[in-house]
Design a protein around this nucleic acid. Structure first.
Lengths: 261, 261
DNA sequence: CGGCCTGTTGAAGAAGGTCAACCTACGTGG
DNA sequence: CCACGTAGGTTGACCTTCTTCAACAGGCCG
């Protein structure tokens, strides 16, 4: 549960109570091989899960083979709060690297929300954040050109990776093939290749094997007006706090735009 | 609150308890003129709201004027569960017709989830459904061509309108300009016009003034493989029900594909 | 009446898609 | 150790889809 706690720590203080609650969730760890289908569209969902290690993609496939990636799951990300109300999966999840995940039963989830810990609120926040990421995905693919899309996606992934401490080295292991990027951005692989070689030649990024380094973040930012606002890195949970006093409000320092990221 | 209850009734039985809980929310009704900005990106959110009457669009605007509509709000739709954890709006909401909405305070929301009524679960379900609609939006715009996008959007809107009983006449008042459709589908107005003229000439739809009639649903379905699965019209809330026994499970009859819709 | 908003149509152009060849890195089996 | 196959990436040529620009038409409202 380390990844989840790390992520939640961004906006709320994790105390011993939260750690205890999180520890209870660690019951059933499961690991998936790269390429393995973790959830298949149409499946009956029996549990949600939290990713502890590795990357996965959420996607839908059309009859004729076209595929659209709707979301990338990284450590600390949650899948399937919907298991509480909707039993049938409306999209698939595929492991991109080796993935370790904790399965969480519906019962455990509703327990989480009843428990007096911040974890329940935290999950809500994670849900809000994910939805916001989906909206930004729509904006990116709908109103930006190919170069802007690639730049924006790379910045988002890098920023999200940093939250769970996976980009501190700047040169991070980057597990996405150009096919996946294309399927996320609604472009062809060929065009993604062209754009990325362009970005490389312009010294905005550097690629070696399976690693990707952002060498000129300001340059990328300038290309696509990246704004981290939608990631809601500063949450305000005072609405909930009112109910359970006795804690100081969080003081997460701000960070929003371009250079700051 | 009639619209909300009507919508929720699709998958859970509304009893007197639920009606009472919903009635409590009706405190502050507010009405907005067509074109009025209900929420502005960057605003500090003070309350969520439920749409009772009218249509609204959720959108983000880029610096250079490009606009992307990320969601259409219809009667019974909810905005701003995020108010519980994130105070700053990450997108704007604009009334498209005259809109009547009930404002809901964060306190009232958390109360809803504490109350022993189905309304809390219902909101959760609404949230899951909305997220699913966003995912489908990504798929539509990412991997479908212009004609498919238009057909798919029209079918979705029609289907959603029917849930709250606004499409029974088939010839419904359709408040979306081609500009809005374009901004939702990531296309230019001109191209939307061309596609819709084509669909009209092919007798798939009929347009008169501000009304739009789907004259050949099977034809439209065939164009875009529309599948209502993602709308989660059949919810399974047994996970929650376990906690509060004493009610028979719902028996919402199925309906999924093409001709059936 | 005139202005404005919405939609229509045509012509020209750009962005990105498709097809196909080729290249490298890697893993597997002989 | 090399031969081979496969997956991922690159590059060029050509073509399609959608965009842009521009002109015009109808409805609505002051």
């Amino acid at each position: 549960m380390k990844a989840l706690l790390k992520r939640l720590a961004v906006y709320c203080d994790i105390g011993s109570r939260e750690e205890a609650v999180a520890a209870e969730l660690e019951t059933e760890s499961h690991s998936y091989a790269p390429g393995e289908q973790m959830v298949c569209e149409g499946d009956q969902l029996r549990h949600a899960f939290v990713v502890e290690r590795g990357w996965a993609s959420a996607h839908r496939d059309l009859e004729d083979g076209r595929r659209q990636v709707v979301h990338f799951l990284m450590p600390g990300d949650f899948f399937g709060l919907q298991v509480m109300v909707a039993r049938t999966a409306d999209h698939s999840i595929t492991a991109l690297t080796e993935v370790e995940a904790f399965r969480i039963s519906p019962g455990a989830i509703s327990h989480l929300f009843a428990e007096p810990s911040d974890i329940g609120i935290a999950l809500w926040w994670a849900q809000v954040q994910e939805e916001s990421i989906l909206r930004e995905h729509i904006v990116r693919n709908g109103r930006r050109n190919a170069t802007e899309r690639v730049a924006h996606l790379l910045l988002e992934l890098h920023r999200r990776a940093r939250i769970v401490g996976h980009a501190e080295s700047e040169t991070k292991h980057f597990p996405l093939s150009q096919q996946l990027i294309a399927d996320s951005l609604g472009l062809s692989v060929v065009h993604v290749s062209r754009v990325m070689t362009r970005l490389t030649k312009d010294k905005l990024i550097e690629r070696k094997g399976k690693s990707l380094k952002i060498t000129d973040r300001d340059g990328l930012n300038a290309l696509c007006e990246f704004d981290t606002g939608y990631l809601h890195l500063e949450a305000d949970i005072s609405a909930f706090r009112l109910k359970r006093p006795g804690r100081p409000p969080d003081q997460t320092p701000g960070e929003n735009r371009a250079g700051a990221a």
